[in-house]
Design a protein around this nucleic acid. Structure first.
Length: 269
DNA sequence: AAGGAAATCAACCGCCCCATG
DNA sequence: ACATGGGGCGGTTGATTTCCT
């Protein structure tokens, strides 16, 4: 049986979004939400496929999107999560607030993969400066709704504070093939753990300078200084919070991985 | 300065999973 | 149990930008 195309192909616009389209979509979603992507373009008056609208919103128009170059720490996180999850871009995006799976995927394919192949510790040495594309009719000029300047965020690694790298002896299966969809939280993890809090938007709002980053973040280490204030590491050991935090299997494995720090005993895929 | 090569990234495509009837 | 529709995901493409000679 052949499935019907997701949307009527005829008469639908493709390619770059215009500022006007962006505004229409943003306005509509702000007003009505996006309960039905397929019906959305019709109701909003857009000549776009519902999927295209969804993608545009998720990857670009969403208010919580974080633009700009990835920090070294974010790249390190991506590399490490890729070791754990493979090409589970959405899983990685879930742990990098403000970043989209598409963006992570692009970063991986453009320079992280090459960096690993070349065994380079830092890709920024040759990384091109990301500039907003200037197109006459292009939505990329929609700075009215999006923050174009990138502020170096507070370190995500702060949340991985004091991870015991020797605690990698957690007894878990190496089968990750179904973790993404696994809703069963009854995974037994009796070894040492800490609660990984959800990273809220305020996490990204604080800015630090590059110098601060470099002084608190050794290039090749996920461990950061103990001298930073405690509130930067909102961990506690509550089992209750632990259970609430791990809403799905993916979160669990990501956090197990993160806690394991530099462990070399990663599962193979 | 010009032109080609390489890199980047937004967007599309098609498949898969899940919810629903 | 099965069919169907919708959402989500990962792979890929192609336009654009930047670098290099």
């Amino acid at each position: 049986m052949v499935r019907a195309p997701c949307c009527e192909k005829k008469g639908l616009k493709k390619g770059q979004w215009t500022l006007e389209e962006d505004e229409i979509l943003t306005s509509y979603i702000n007003k009505h939400g996006h309960s039905n992507w397929r019906a959305l373009p019709k109701h909003a008056g857009l000549l776009r496929c519902g999927k295209s609208c969804r993608l545009r919103w998720i990857n670009y128009l969403r208010p919580d999107i974080k633009r700009g170059n990835f920090t070294n720490e974010e790249e390190e996180i991506i590399i490490k999560m890729h070791e754990l999850l493979g090409n589970r871009w959405s899983g990685m995006a879930a742990k990098l607030p403000g970043r989209t799976d598409n963006e992570i995927k692009n970063v991986w394919h453009t320079h992280l993969k090459k960096r690993l192949l070349n065994n380079q510790p830092n890709s920024n040495t040759k990384k091109r400066v990301s500039k907003q594309k200037i197109k006459s009719s292009n939505s990329n000029s929609n700075s009215s709704t999006l923050t174009q300047s990138y502020e170096p965020s507070n370190s995500p690694s702060n949340y991985f504070h004091e991870i015991e790298t020797t605690s990698s002896n957690s007894t878990f299966s190496s089968d990750f093939s179904s973790q993404g969809k696994n809703k069963d939280n009854s995974i037994n993890c009796e070894d040492s753990f800490v609660t990984m809090p959800e990273i809220d938007e305020s996490f990204w709002s604080e800015t630090i300078t590059d110098d601060e980053i470099s002084s608190t973040m050794p290039t090749n280490s996920m461990t950061i200084s103990n001298e930073l204030p405690n509130q930067q590491y909102p961990f506690n050991n509550s089992v209750e919070n632990f259970q609430n935090t791990f809403d799905d299997g993916m979160d669990f494995w990501v956090d197990v991985f993160i806690r394991s720090g530099e462990s070399t005993e990663l599962p193979e895929f």
